[in-house]
């Protein structure tokens, strides 16, 4: 690694995945984390979300390897790592579908994300307030930032659940953050806040990869864009170049979009 790209990277090599005989991901070689923020672009069924899920090992790979490379640390084979160990390694992903923990309040969710395993054992002596005291500052910061007025309530709307998902990811202080349609269904104000939070995170050394159908988010936020179609990576370049590429225009953006 050269001095400029001293940030966490994910190396995807010969990764393939099929469902019912149909190849949905077939990537020879892809490096994520070359630049602070990368966008994954492509039509529906291109394999973007599946690729993210393969990186997180939440579904098994048919073949190939996914490796996490962090400056000054030993490489980790993510494709041989359990999903529940990913967050501990700094690899975190938001969910595409709006989801939450039934019954748990917003503060519960935030506390859950930051609580270390030793406090979660059956007879751990530390009270809940001990955990809160250790992490109150960052939790308060992100909940206030996204405008959660009553953290002691349960998140009810789809927008609140989406934002809460992002808050949980941010509280994990990721080295690599995979965001799957993070602004879908959010208001303009919240979309801007998510974008600002991503920029802030990336400026501190986190490698961010975004799948997003709101192209303005991609063009505004990303330093580089990867274009996928039919499971393959076809292009990887600056947003302006991708935007003007005839293949992208023809198969995804449509004439007149540039």
């Amino acid at each position: 690694m050269t001095g400029e790209d001293l940030r966490p990277q994910i190396l995807v090599r010969d990764v393939s995945k099929s469902f019912s005989g149909r190849v949905v991901v077939d990537v020879d070689e892809l490096v994520l984390g070359d630049v602070p923020v990368e966008g994954l672009l492509g039509p529906n069924g291109a394999g973007k979300t599946t690729l993210m899920r393969l990186i997180m090992h939440s579904i098994p790979l048919d073949g190939g390897t996914v490796t996490l490379s962090r400056p000054g640390q030993r490489d980790v084979l993510l494709s041989a790592t359990r999903t529940s160990q990913m967050a501990g390694l700094g690899v975190v992903k938001s969910t595409q579908v709006i989801t939450d923990f039934e019954h748990l309040t917003i503060l519960d969710s935030a506390l859950l994300a930051v609580t270390e395993a030793r406090y979660e054992r059956p007879f751990a002596a530390a009270a809940d307030r001990t955990v809160r005291k250790r992490h109150e500052e960052e939790i308060r910061h992100w909940l206030d930032y996204f405008g959660f007025d009553d953290p002691l309530a349960v998140a009810l709307s789809g927008g609140d659940k989406k934002l809460l998902d992002i808050v949980r990811c941010l509280l994990l202080e990721p080295a690599v953050l995979l965001l799957d349609e993070p602004t879908a269904g959010l208001s303009e104000d919240h979309t801007e806040r998510v974008k600002a939070a991503v920029r802030q995170l990336a400026s501190r050394g986190t490698s961010v990869v975004i799948v997003e159908h709101d192209l303005d988010v991609i063009w505004d936020l990303c330093d580089e864009v990867i274009f996928m179609a039919e499971g393959k990576v076809l292009l990887k370049d600056k947003p302006a170049t991708i935007r003007a590429n005839p293949t992208v225009v023809e198969s995804y953006l449509g004439a007149g979009s540039a």
């Binding site: 939440s58 529940s84 923990f101 039934e102």
Partner: peptide
Amino acid sequence: ANEALARSLG
């Protein structure tokens, strides 16, 4: 409530 989400949080 949501095992997959809990796993994603480590």
